[in-house]
Computed example of a mutant assay.
Amino acid sequence: MASEHSTASTGPLARVITGARTALFVMTGALAVIWLVQIANWSGDYQLVRDYGIHPRELGELGDVLSAPLLHGTWEHVESNSVPLFVFGVLAAYRGMRRFLALTLLTVLTSGGAVWLLEDSNTVTVGASGVVYGYFGYVVLRGIFDRNLLDTVIGVLLGASYAYILLAVLPGDPGISWLGHLGGLLGGLAGAWVFRDRRAKAAPAAAATAPGQARSAHADLLKELDDLGI
């Protein structure tokens, strides 16, 4: 009886629930930091934007690629980014924090790097929208590369529901950095491959070593799908 309880407590459904709780906690904390920074930014007449926003092709300002996602130019700017950042972030994070943190760094670098390299030199760019697009691209493709049915369904639903945001990765509104959006999206798509679950490929080969092992692996897969409600 004790053995059955231990197995259930560490099963796939329990891991998903634990991961979702951690993701909710982390993204709530991230949004709290962004809003606290916005309060400080606003109270200082947005001097933080001028000091720590991305100034294209200025070597001394290259480190601001890391600080720019925390900054926003207006209250409307931070409000518009908060909901998608939270939703996409939770979906990107619930499978594991190490992959999520690595993905976040990748999308910050690809988004900010695209702005720093290619944006007009007379602009200062801030905002978390590049990271939002990175999370979006990652969640859409992650299930395919991980060969995970649940994540594939989530990716399809997310892609279908928010496909319209891809319009903002094309040149258009001069007040919106489409380069930052495009760089973040490409970083997220690449992250789905770079941070894929390598065990997804190893499992079929291991299961084929013997008939008994194959049946056991098949039974384990069915149990996992049943635990996840699939």
Rank of each mutant, 00 (worst) to 15 (best):
L157I: 12
L149A: 04
V115L: 03
G184F: 03
N122H: 13
L167A: 15
K223H: 13
G180D: 10
W193G: 00
L150F: 10
T110W: 05
T110S: 15
G130D: 03
R215E: 15
T152V: 06
V139T: 06
R199W: 00
A93Y: 15
R215G: 00
A128M: 12
G184A: 11
D197G: 01
L150W: 11
L103W: 07
A163R: 09
R95L: 12
V108A: 06
L141P: 08
S161P: 01
R199C: 00
E119P: 02
L170M: 14
A208K: 13
A214V: 00
D120K: 13
D197C: 04
R199E: 07
A93W: 13
S121D: 12
S121F: 01
D120G: 07
P211A: 10
G112V: 04
A92V: 05
Y164T: 12
A208G: 09
Y162A: 10
G183F: 05
S177M: 07
V115Y: 11
G137S: 05
A93E: 00
A202F: 09
L170G: 04
G183W: 12
D220M: 08
G112H: 10
P211R: 09
G155S: 02
A114P: 09
Y164S: 12
V153K: 13
G113Y: 06
L101F: 15
P171F: 07
A202M: 06
G137Q: 10
L103G: 13
G96W: 14
A219W: 04
W178G: 02
V115A: 04
L222F: 00
A210I: 05
V132R: 05
A190Q: 08
A206W: 12
L117H: 02
L118N: 01
F195M: 04
R198T: 12
Y138G: 01
A202G: 03
A205C: 00
D226H: 13
S129N: 12
S129W: 15
G212C: 02
G143M: 02
S177L: 09
L158M: 15
W116S: 01
W178S: 11
G155Q: 10
V131M: 04
S111D: 06
Y164Q: 11
A202Q: 14
F100S: 00
L158H: 08
H181C: 04
G130P: 05
A128P: 14
L106Q: 05
G172Q: 07
D226N: 01
G134Y: 08
A190R: 06
Y162C: 12
S129P: 02
R147Y: 09
N148C: 05
L189F: 08
L103F: 11
V126I: 02
D197H: 08
V169I: 15
R99E: 11
L179P: 07
A192C: 06
G134M: 09
R198V: 02
R98E: 06
A163H: 10
G188L: 09
Q213L: 15
G212K: 06
H218W: 10
F195A: 03
V126Y: 07
G175V: 06
P174M: 02
